[in-house]
Amino acid sequence: MRILVTGGAGFIGSHIVDELIQFGHHVHILDNLTTGHRENLNSQAIFHYGDLLDHGLAEAFAASQPEVVIHHAAQIDIQTSLANPMLDAQINILGTIAVLEQCRMHGVRKIIYASSAAVYGTPQYLGLDEVHPIRPLSFYGISKQTPEQYIGTYAALYELDYTILRYANVYGIRQDPKGEGGVVSIFVDKLLEGKQPLIYGDGEQTRDFVYVKDIVRANIAALNNGSHGLYNISCNEQTSVNVLLREMCEISCTHFDPVYLPIRKGDIVHSRLDNQAALEGLGWSPLYSLRDGLRETLDYYRKQYQSKGTNESNGSKLI
Rank of each mutant, 00 (worst) to 15 (best):
Y200Q: 13
E19D: 09
L137M: 09
I268V: 03
N311P: 00
D299T: 10
Y171K: 08
L261S: 02
Y260M: 03
K178R: 15
G10T: 08
S14G: 06
F256T: 03
F11H: 11
E247L: 02
G95Q: 11
E148R: 10
T153N: 09
Q44P: 12
V210Q: 12
D31R: 05
P262G: 01
C249P: 04
G13D: 03
G266H: 01
D161N: 07
T35W: 14
P133I: 00
G7Y: 04
T239D: 03
H28R: 02
D274K: 01
P147L: 07
L223S: 01
L192M: 09
P85N: 14
T34G: 07
N92G: 12
V184Q: 07
D54V: 09
G172P: 13
T239H: 12
N84W: 13
G226H: 05
E19W: 02
S285F: 14
Q44G: 10
L287W: 15
D257G: 02
E130Y: 00
D274M: 00
S138M: 08
A118S: 05
V212T: 12
T146M: 13
P85R: 14
G229K: 04
Q205C: 12
V188H: 04
L298S: 05
Q22I: 01
A73L: 06
Q175T: 10
G181T: 08
D214H: 07
Q79M: 14
L261Q: 08
P262Q: 02
Y154L: 06
M1F: 06
S138I: 03
Q306S: 07
G36A: 12
I186G: 04
L128V: 05
N311R: 06
Y305T: 04
L20W: 07
E193D: 10
N224K: 04
L128K: 00
Y167E: 07
